[in-house]
Amino acid sequence: MNMIETNTARHDPGIRIRTEVRSFEAASGTAVPPVKTSIDLKQVNLSYGDNQVLFDVSMKIGERMVTALIGPSGCGKSTLLRCLNRMNDLIDNTEIKGSIKVGDRNIYAADTDVIEVRRRIGMVFQKSNPFPKSIYENVVYGLRIAGITDKATLDEACERSLKSAALWDEVKDRLSESGLSLSGGQQQRLCIARAIAVEPEIVLMDEPCSALDPIATLKIEELIYDLKKHYTIVIVTHNLQQAARVSDRTAFFWLGRLVEYGNTPEVFTKPKEKLTEDYITGRFG
């Protein structure tokens, strides 16, 4: 605990107070309620051609909580995240073994409707990628392609999603402007609004703050904290302080293997593995 605060203070004094509050919550145990499993990974192996990226990953991701995936670059955490909504299908020569169950269905079963999977599992990317369309059209994109044309439904979904993404007050008067006219942080929140507009069960976030400044990062983190009331969130991050601040559980990956997985305060304060301790204390990575 002590270590995290010093690190934070050194890097970004502006976020320190918040860190302490969150740490306190995590330490007191309130942030980790008894948990229902949302995603169940069993023996997941993945390779791109001859290059195996994930080795025997098994983990249960709890419902309505934030799970952070951490680890050095190239450890496979982003790849794992992209397995969860079958984004790796887009890459040729990807071979995946094992099972990933969402609810009680294996999303890699032969009869799976990939489109349905992606509708139930939204995703936010490292670099904000709004479409070159209006803010409104960006948010309702998922609904439109699902075939919804009713204006009232779309309007309602747009407002609800933008409010959930804490962007409504900033953009409500200019919904017809291009999504690209927003600032970087706003764009990322727009992408979050777009992801939650289709009311997914799970939201995957792939380093959502890595291209943002500290203020925007703080806003997204607050947003993640609010969103977990309704959504299961899996977040990949390089920022250990961020993982400590926002997540309930943390999984540490190294060279494609899951090294340690547990409640965030424990992983950060009393890691069981030497490797984890070395990584979070900055000895490598």
Binding site: R118, G122, I145
Partner: peptide, 15 residues
């Protein structure tokens, strides 16, 4: 056309 744009669309459940 950037790959990220396509991914965003797929992630929304687009075919």
């Amino acid at each position: 056309v950037p790959q990220s744009m396509r991914e965003a669309s797929y992630a929304c459940g687009a075919t």
